[in-house]
Write a protein that binds this DNA or RNA. Structure first.
Length: 417
DNA sequence: TCTGGGGTCCTGCTGCTT
DNA sequence: TCTGAAGCAGCAGGACCC
């Protein structure tokens, strides 16, 4: 769900656009989470529905009927409910979204192996190798839209262009349920009439900075001397935006994606000021992160924690270990060490997070034989937990300190901790 | 109005090494 | 032995994306 909406610039001709050389497709599901959720709630189709939840949550997705009332993604749920009180609010169904996404990606792969998923609901495709077999890029775009609709029951929008960033903008303009082709020789005029916020990498802050420089359209950026942009926005952003403003985006569609970090964070239902409770949450998050590392056959060297206070100020602290690890214990001990070093005296905390960075593949990581006996023991324990989780379900085994002894076990088979 | 959770990337600062 | 410069790694914060 795009957070920004732009209208389609006027085309000077009524002829179908020339898609020669426009071999990059950006495919984006329309209101993906909402549409997917409605597959099991057909009675709500055509009504305002908001996907999200929790007292302190934000909107994950909303149907177009809800968006007419001003509801957008990432909006606080309290505000969304106020704007559209008649909307039905449903919780997310992440398993369902993953399953549909996987099927949609298979559809893309049947067109070309050159796909780069960006998230569950969107991907870039390079169709240059499929044109002879399936037809022009626009024909392939139409084929994908029909197939996704017929097989999954949801709609998607497609942008067709010579470069990734123009295809991405085009798919946004095509929404909902449409396709926009940007011919190669119209790229510059197309991008330069857009507002600066249309550019990938321009968020609220950068837009403010550009406005201060008197720049409102992409064309304004294009005609600003590069040194002025670099002075105002920094080296990387200045160079990047200047290139985009002239339609230059040499990035290819990349099939391989290596994760650079894996983390988890948790916003509490109520602010917490008890350090013991924060430790419990850090343990749960460390457990989760370690399990994800092991399932991806990765280890990490840098443990970082994030702490967000009640006033929403956020700090991070990180420590790099001598050797990479994937054990819950090592991550937890480092995370609590970082937290304790803050010396917080009953500060009201809204969120804590744990993240592992500097990831190394398990095969390349010098773990076995270099760590002490105790670490080896923790690794064996973690593996046993992974095996039990695979057999009995995630969460069936967890550290004793995470068991809520005030409640009887929800599972009849008892807790394996 | 009151801000999730998963990430990536950039910038600036600091301290270490050469 | 001391000092300054340059390069680099680590860290912290922030902006941005979906």
């Amino acid at each position: 769900m795009s957070r920004r909406q732009f209208s389609l610039p006027e085309r000077s001709s009524s002829e179908p656009p020339d898609d020669t050389g426009c071999t990059i497709l950006h495919v984006d599901m329309d209101a993906f989470y909402a549409s997917a959720t409605l597959l099991s709630h057909p009675e709500l189709v055509g009504t305002p529905v908001i996907i999200g939840g929790g007292n302190r949550g934000v909107v994950l997705s909303a149907t177009y009927e809800a968006r007419r009332f001003g509801v957008t993604s990432a909006m606080p749920m309290t505000r969304a409910r106020r704007l559209c009180p008649q909307a039905t609010v449903l919780p997310p169904e992440h398993g369902l979204y993953a399953a549909i996404s996987s099927a949609v990606m298979e559809t893309f792969r049947s067109v070309t192996p050159e796909i780069e998923p960006l998230s569950l609901d969107e991907a870039f495709l390079d169709v240059s190798g499929a044109v002879r077999r399936l037809g022009s890029p626009a024909t392939i775009g139409a084929l994908i839209r029909d197939t996704v609709h017929d097989e999954q029951g949801i709609t998607c929008s497609v942008g067709v262009a010579p470069t990734k960033f123009v295809a991405k903008i085009a798919s946004g303009l095509a929404k909902p349920d449409g396709m926009v082709v940007v011919p190669r020789d119209e790229v510059i005029s197309f991008v330069q009439q857009l507002p600066v916020a249309a550019l990938w990498g321009v968020g609220e802050r950068t837009e403010e900075q550009l406005t201060r420089l008197g720049l409102r359209t992409v064309g304004d950026i294009a005609h600003t001397p590069l040194p002025t942009l670099v002075r105002g926005l920094g080296e990387a952003t200045g160079q990047h935006l200047h290139a985009l403003s002239w339609g230059r985006d040499p990035r290819p569609v990349e099939r391989e994606h290596r994760e650079k970090s894996i983390g988890a964070d948790e916003t509490f239902e109520y602010d917490i000021d008890d350090p013991r409770e924060i430790h419990r949450r850090l343990l749960r998050l460390s457990d989760k992160v370690a399990a994800r590392l092991r399932s991806a056959r990765l280890t990490g060297r840098t443990v970082s924690i994030k702490v967000r206070f009640a006033d929403f100020t956020t700090i991070t602290r990180a420590r790099t270990l001598r050797e990479p690890t994937d054990t819950s214990r090592a991550i937890y001990e480092t995370a609590t060490g970082l937290f304790d070093a803050l010396g917080l005296q009953r500060a009201r905390i809204r969120l804590v997070g744990v993240r592992m960075e500097k990831l190394v593949g398990l095969e390349a990581a010098p773990i076995q034989g270099m760590l002490g006996e105790s670490e080896h023991g923790w690794r064996e324990a973690d593996r046993a937990v992974d095996r039990a989780s695979a057999r009995f379900g995630a969460g069936s085994v967890r550290p004793a300190s995470l068991i809520d002894t005030s409640r009887p076990s929800a599972r009849g088979d008892g807790d394996l901790s």
